[in-house]
Write a protein that binds this DNA or RNA. Structure first.
Lengths: 246, 246
DNA sequence: GCAAATTAAATGTCAGACTTTTAGAAACGG
DNA sequence: CCGTTTCTAAAAGTCTGACATTTAATTTGC
């Protein structure tokens, strides 16, 4: 792990990189304990704060965890799907909000990914996941549901669909994308009429999954993608018109 | 941004979280300069090392960048697709290597995602991207190509296919998945016979994209997924048999 | 008016002390 | 001999103060 450091660049970055490389390459296996901070100081011949800043960088990426106390120290962390999922959501959310990705692009990506797991979900979905979808559809039909609650339920519905594919790698990638889009979706006002239409499509999707009819699931997801995009465009257009008159 | 800190938990984590929330919520816009370290010390009433460790955590996630000198400081970073892409690859790679995701699961996810952008790529691929694919196919046909070089070319081919969808959100998500799988693919020995078969499928895919024939692209990707999975399984089985005899 | 030197502000690094947490060892008592 | 309590040591977390380095703005000198 020891590498010569270039004093002209930031030391804590170099140390973090060296340790990260050791972890990624497998030289430091999961749950292996790193040397203590003092030992790392001697190894790299730097001050303790420098070592600590390097370790914090790694901790921020969930590559290590630290534990205080006598047998404590820094340990190589087994990256959990939950950790990866959280990072994915943060990254995707920031990417969407900071780069002015237009709604169409985000929507297209989301539904393209979701359609990718439709056939798998049709094959493997459990009765439990179907029940979750039905429950969310029922909730979506309730009057007086706020736009936020509506969107949250929408996410839960699609999350169940994705989980139905029973592929954790797909779930982690996709659920991140779906949830990252929620802030964008929250900006849309869903009228009672548009809600009814979406609920209809959701019902069709659930029915098709029930019947393990992959083609119909795919078709209805495509319809939903098209409808959502059109709806968003009209809502944004209307909002822009309002702003001009005011 | 100022929030009361709980002295029982780690201060640097709380400070990092507070600033991160401010960034994600948009309270701190892109390129906004954070208060200097000394000012943050006073705001949160902690020592400078604590503030610095918090900032390093954020820097590790590309949420901020720091600049030295008179007009320096920490600035809210505009997350670039390149940054997001790099993080995605690291996360996905670790997830696959640390969680004993079996090859079938990873492969299934990868091709499911890739098939998701096949129809878009068929519609939008540029002549340039087609040329890249043809070039990689040509390279793959050369004799004496190492397994690593073969896999790298394979990644480049699929990357061009994904980029053909002309959706940056899809590119970032998918290219990460494709590249994260490369270490797993590198573990497979590709015989001349299997290479020929894959090259044939690649050619079919390129031809179908050329003709903007989405259905055939999808079909050939499915074939490729199936073939790759079978090939991997047989390679792993053969390796296991060898180990038993030794 | 332009170039060089100075200054000031900011991050990066270091050293040392202290605090807190924690597991294990030692002492104690039944 | 066993269980409980106390002590101890190791380690991360925090604080303070100092110095180094980088960089832009300011001042100075010509």
């Amino acid at each position: 792990m020891k590498t010569q450091l270039d004093p002209s660049a930031d030391l804590s970055i170099q140390i973090a990189t060296a340790i990260r490389d050791a972890i990624i390459s497998g030289a430091l296996p999961v749950d292996e304990r790193l040397p203590s901070e003092s030992e790392l100081c001697e190894t790299f011949e730097v001050g303790r704060s420098t070592v600590r800043e390097a370790l914090k960088r790694l901790a921020a990426q969930s590559l290590i965890r630290t534990q205080r106390g006598a047998t404590g120290g820094a340990f190589v962390n087994r990256l959990s799907y939950a950790d990866a999922h959280a990072q994915q959501i943060t990254t995707s959310t920031l990417l969407l909000s900071m780069n002015a990705v237009n709604f169409e692009t985000a929507c297209e990506a989301r539904f393209a990914l979701e359609r990718a797991c439709a056939p798998l979900s049709a094959k493997r979905r459990t009765p439990d996941q179907l029940a979750t979808m039905r429950a969310e559809i029922h909730r979506q039909g309730q009057t007086g549901l706020s736009d936020e609650a509506w969107c949250a339920s929408d996410v839960a519905f699609h999350r169940a669909l994705v989980d139905g594919a029973a592929n954790p790698v797909l779930s982690y990638q996709l659920a991140g994308a779906v949830e990252a889009m929620q802030p964008l979706m929250n900006m849309i006002t869903f009228t009672a009429r548009s809600r009814d239409h979406i609920i209809g499509l959701h019902t069709d999707i659930a029915d098709a999954l029930d019947a393990r009819d992959a083609a119909t699931v795919d078709q209805k997801l495509a319809d939903l993608a098209h409808y959502t995009t059109q709806l968003a465009l009209s809502v944004f257009a209307a909002r822009q018109a309002t702003q001009k008159t005011s």
